[in-house]
């Protein structure tokens, strides 16, 4: 039997709060979540704001882009340029780090993040 987890959709911010092709940080309780407006592709992503490499709260200030033939969307930490997949949270710089990703929905100019 499959158990579906309850996803709670939280209003994070408005679309024009997040710069085009960049990120911004959202406060959810004591959690910090980075939201990315990948406007070049018309896509939105969200991850934890903490870079696991040197424990810095900065991923929302990183540059986003794509990696490889499949154009995997990614973010680069501004501190040491470790890159992470925005889809899986996997570290793409060949190290064993993993960051949390969240589903995002945009409805009527409002950005919602799915919290499990």
């Amino acid at each position: 039997m499959e158990v579906l987890e309850d996803v709670q959709w939280v209003l994070a911010c408005y679309t024009d709060d997040v710069p085009e092709n960049g990120g911004a940080c959202v406060k959810h309780g004591s959690e910090q979540i980075a939201v990315y407006n990948f406007s070049r592709r018309g896509e939105w992503y969200a991850t934890q704001n903490l870079c696991p490499h040197k424990q810095q709260m900065v991923l929302s200030r990183g540059m986003i882009g794509s990696a490889g033939e499949a154009c995997e969307p990614k973010v680069a930490c501004p501190f040491h340029k470790k890159t992470f997949s925005l889809l899986s949270g996997e570290c793409l710089s060949g190290e064993d780090y993993q960051i949390k990703t969240y589903p995002v929905r945009v409805i009527d100019g409002k950005v919602y993040i799915g919290i499990v």
Binding site: P19, E20, N21, G22, G23, F38, R40, R41, G62, M63, I64, G65, S66, A67, C71, P73, K74, A76, K81, T83
Partner: peptide, 29 residues
């Protein structure tokens, strides 16, 4: 593709060296 942390600042630097526009206009590169 969609660019990355290597080419974005590089292009930003070239654009500035050529046109000297306000860099905050394209802050995310």
């Amino acid at each position: 593709g969609d660019g990355c942390e290597v080419c974005k600042p590089l292009v930003a630097s070239i654009l500035s060296s050529l046109w000297n526009d306000l860099i905050v206009k394209q802050d995310t590169i």
